[in-house]
Write a protein that binds this DNA or RNA. Structure first.
Length: 490
RNA sequence: CGGGGCGUAGCACAGCCUGGUAGUGCGCUCGGUUUGGGACCGAGAGGUCGGAUGUUCGAAUCAUCUCGCCCCGACCA
């Protein structure tokens, strides 16, 4: 068995799959396109959930839960929404099985056909807005700020662990507002929450932007997104926030009486991030030794590996190390002291690197004599022998430093791989090399389509912070007001 | 759904062309020595070769059919 991972630069796809497998994050399930998230992977997801949930609460949102099943008639109500999701829906048609009269096993009981088919939710706008109809009568009921943590199913033709699975876990926020302005503010506020989460927790820089019409969420007026650049030069849409206008309120007849005593349709937003963020986390930071986790999301932040021969030696190390473990825990740092004697230190070193543990401490007899400890950082793969005194404080600071360093590394990578391009020749060359391309676009669907079919590059977003700049479309040569971001994407 | 690849031990693979005793490495079990970057020695356990049919004295190997998985496209968070 080859112990080394495939090289990131040689086969990115294989490298990614190996990290997912070897770091024990997830595996494919018996059901095609679905994944099993393993305990270590799930622990990371839980940390993400916790941080996001806190941010949602801090912005006034509450959690609720809505059904898994969407009656087909609900999905039909918003036309564009229906059209957008129709091709990827799992449908429940029966509610009972029975023994096969002609042989072994079970068959679907033909007598148990549902009058109306149920769709397994691909997203919950329809069920939620159907419920909101009963919840909203007056401007006093608004804003309604709800989030749901759930699973959804989208029957994709081709799947990839974390990045695109048939079933995935996510959160979906669904809010209702009395005014358009307020709804747009909410849309942008939540986009900001996602960007903050991506940058401060995941240590992954993102571009905030708005989608072109062709990339817009089905049923939305505007779709905003955060786009991140992966190490192979492809973009990953990491979160979306939609301004839905009054589309769903009209479709589900959600009207309220405003302060002027007139009936008005509610204004809506929805926003979501999914387990795809796990894929983003892996692809944004990891290296040829395995996963690299930002300390804020690492289930184990510090691992301590004892190095000893005899059992008495281990006991001495135990005594030496216990107070530090307590001290670290008191600082809110999660520590694992790995005394498992089935594996040698070298094996453990490699294993924790594979799993992305940010800091590793090695303590042996030599250290006990010298009152030292070996401190290894995952992000830089450097080792440093330092005094045992004050080590807990040092590690606390080191974790912060690693968090920042991982971000800066990703930021520098993005900067080096973002290119302003002004000619079609350069565009075609650059897109092969990967990265974000900042280029002028004439705003038409035709040009966007043509560029896509010729280069597989799509408009990732129109950046929110872009400055107006007169120019010519990189493809059509027609006038353009600003640059947009093109890339090949996942 | 198109194009390519692969199904042999828990995992990774060889054997197939040219039919004749089921192999290797990792992992696993037991014993011993080891332990500061994926330890070593010795002894063991583990297989209806994805399935079906056919050709043959004889099939992992040849033929036909079938099922499953992976990769590349179209679709997408």
């Amino acid at each position: 068995m080859s112990k080394a991972l495939p090289k990131r630069s040689e086969n990115y796809s294989e490298w990614y799959n190996e990290i997912v497998k070897r770091a024990d994050l997830a595996e494919n399930s018996a059901v095609r396109g679905c994944m099993i998230i393993k305990p270590y992977g799930y622990a990371i997801w839980e940390k993400m959930q916790r941080a996001l949930d806190d941010m949602f609460k801090a912005t006034g949102h509450q959690n609720a839960y809505f059904p898994l099943f969407v009656p087909k008639s609900f999905l039909e109500k918003e036309e564009e929404h229906a059209e957008g999701f129709a091709k990827e829906c799992a449908v429940v048609t029966h509610y009972r099985l029975k023994a096969n009269p002609d042989g072994k096993g079970l068959i679907v009981d033909p007598n148990a056909k549902l009058e109306e088919e149920l769709i397994i939710r691909p997203t919950s706008e329809t069920v939620i807005w159907n419920a909101y109809k009963g919840w909203i009568q007056s401007w006093r009921d608004l804003p309604l700020l709800i989030n749901q943590w759930a699973n959804v199913v989208r029957w994709e033709m081709r799947t990839r662990v974390f990045l695109r699975t048939a079933e995935f876990l996510w959160q979906e926020g669904h809010t209702a507002h009395a005014t358009e302005t307020e709804a747009i503010e909410e849309t942008l506020k939540m986009l900001g929450v996602y960007a903050t989460f991506a940058e401060e927790w995941m240590a992954m820089p993102v571009i905030k932007g708005i989608k072109s019409a062709s990339e817009r969420f089905a049923g939305a007026v505007d779709t905003y997104c955060i786009e991140a650049l992966m190490q192979d030069g492809k973009a990953l849409q990491s979160g979306t926030s939609h301004f839905l206008g009054q589309n769903f309120a009209r479709s589900f007849d959600v009207q309220f009486v405003n302060k002027e005593n007139t009936l008005e349709y509610a204004w809506a937003t929805s926003w979501g991030v999914s387990t795809r963020l796990m894929g983003a986390l892996i692809m944004a930071h990891s290296d040829d030794n395995g996963l690299v986790l930002p300390p804020k999301l690492a289930p184990i932040q510090v691992v301590i590996v004892p190095i000893y021969r005899a059992a008495e030696d281990l006991q001495k190390i135990d005594e030496h190390v216990m107070p530090i473990i307590e001290e670290l825990k008191a600082l809110g740092i999660s520590v694992k002291y790995d005394t498992d004697d089935k594996f040698k230190p070298g094996y453990k070193f490699a294993e924790y690197e594979l799993r992305g543990v940010p800091v590793r401490l090695a303590v042996g007899m030599r250290d006990l004599e010298n009152n030292t400890v070996e401190v290894a950082r995952r992000d830089t793969l450097t080792k440093d022998t330092r005094s045992f005194d004050g080590i807990a404080g040092h590690i606390g600071a080191l974790l912060d430093e690693i968090q920042v360093n991982i971000y800066q590394k990703a930021f520098a990578f993005r900067k080096e791989n973002t290119f302003e391009v002004d000619t079609w020749e350069d565009f075609k060359t650059q897109i092969e090399a990967g990265g974000f391309i900042s280029a002028h676009w004439d705003g038409t669907n035709e040009t966007e389509e043509a560029i896509k079919s010729e280069t597989k590059a799509t408009i990732r977003c129109i950046p929110l912070d872009a400055t107006e700049e007169a120019g010519k479309d990189v493809y059509s040569g027609k006038p353009s007001k600003q640059r947009v971001i093109f890339a090949r994407s996942y």
